[in-house]
Design a protein around this nucleic acid. Structure first.
Lengths: 158, 158
DNA sequence: CCTGAATTGTTCGTACACAAACGATGGTCG
DNA sequence: CGACCATCGTTTGTGTACGAACAATTCAGG
């Protein structure tokens, strides 16, 4: 169709002459957040003692150590994980014997999660690593910049 | 050596009485980066015109519109995607007819990628959406705070 | 020229991430 | 009491993310 070719010409000219609506990927928050998160997980992998432990598994363990006992969904909310995602994370942690699951006597829908002895040991070892990972992630910033950044980042988190 | 045992005791006491070495998940950069990224992708989903288009597919399209033509690996580097990840992203974009692939005459290992006419049309429509998505993601911050945040975030991105 | 190192694209396996639908259970309110 | 609705855990399907291994190709050095 003739109009198609005409349109394409116009489009090409517009793209060449007018760069007002331009979109630079490297300036977009989403892309920067994704890259910063990528860098953080790489730092995590390099510094966490246990090579099998992932950031989400680590978060679940630490939070469980914090609250002592919680149902899957509750722990998921505390760690910002989807129920379906939590399903897989918990399954792998149970398979490794780091957490245990027992039915809630007061609510037969719920499964209560607790750390096992091995889980508690791992948490003790990994806590220092966690702080080191956070430090190394923020290493490009000065102390005051870190504080500013974390304050602003928190406000972009619902 | 005596000072060693003394130090360890001091550490243990410190750990028991003082909760300085405690680990609060919600204060850790990695967790905050993850949650901010989650929130951004939710905003993306809600605001991008095409419901099938994902953030990564969008990034690949926009970058390809920017550079005109690139091999898979090259486009992957430009968009911070692993070669294996790029594989899947490109496959889906080709299946939807948004990009085309042809062999590089100068290097038979390479496959050159370009936008199709449909891809170019989608890019034109989605550019405004992309800016709106970035704005809405940064909405909790004031203009000067946004500038500060983006500057600091960029420095945490290798 | 020719052998070894590097690059390109592919596949496989594991682990998030989330929408959607499901059965089982629990609480509420008429 | 009984219908209704919310919540809990599970499964399925699609789409990132990346390490690892692979064949084909290119390139650099001797």
């Amino acid at each position: 169709m003739g109009w198609r070719a005409a349109d394409r010409t116009k489009q090409t000219l517009k793209a060449q002459n007018d760069d007002a609506p331009e979109y630079l990927l490297e300036d977009q928050v989403g892309h920067l957040l994704r890259r910063a998160h990528q860098r953080h997980t790489a730092i995590f992998q390099a510094n966490i003692a246990d090579q099998q432990l992932t950031p989400l598994q680590f978060a679940a363990l630490m939070k469980l150590a914090d609250v002592g006992e919680a149902s899957q969904n509750h722990l998921g909310r505390l760690t910002a994980m989807d129920a379906a995602t939590m399903q897989g994370v918990i399954k792998r942690l149970i398979a490794r014997g780091l957490i245990a699951r027992r039915p809630d006597p007061d609510d037969r829908r719920r499964l209560l999660l607790t750390l096992t002895e091995d889980g508690r040991i791992l948490v003790d070892v990994a806590t220092a690593r966690g702080h080191r990972i956070s430090d190394e992630t923020l290493e490009p910033l000065s102390p005051s910049e870190r504080q500013t950044f974390l304050k602003l980042l928190l406000r972009l988190t619902d």
